[in-house]
């Protein structure tokens, strides 16, 4: 990235979540769907260091949607996540911001 980044340094630890098990569940999906070695998973890891191609990222997102019964759009925040810690923060935020689905109308 050559443009100015006003976000400060990228995080080096996992985000603090209300549900601490969530990180492990997300990591499990990344390992299985992305065919990534578990030892390579770290907060500072990037898609590049994990060797994740775009099709594998799609598989990971599909796996996460099934695991958590949610929808994760390709948002500008997601596309700008600098490492795994930020990526997980964005994914968790997008799950929690999902609007209440209308229950009628089939």
């Amino acid at each position: 990235m050559t443009d100015e980044d006003t976000r400060g340094p990228a995080p080096t630890t996992w985000p603090q979540l209300d549900d601490p098990d969530m990180i492990e569940r997300i990591i499990k999906v990344i390992v299985e769907e992305g065919k990534v070695e578990r030892d390579k998973i770290a907060p500072e890891a990037t898609l590049q260091t994990l060797g994740l191609e775009s099709i594998e990222v799609v598989m990971v997102l599909m796996g996460l949607e099934e695991e958590f019964d949610t929808y994760i759009p390709m948002s500008s925040d997601l596309s700008e996540a600098r490492n795994l810690s930020e990526l997980i923060s964005v994914i968790v935020a997008s799950m929690q911001s999902e609007p209440a689905a209308p229950t009628s109308g089939g």
Binding site: M62, P73, M74, S75, P99
Partner: peptide, 20 residues
């Protein structure tokens, strides 16, 4: 949905925080 270009709520062209 599978392309992940659908916004779950609001279309925000050229805005920060846009979701599709």
């Amino acid at each position: 949905e599978m392309m992940r270009v659908l916004s779950p709520d609001v279309c925000r062209p050229f805005s920060a925080g846009r979701t599709g």
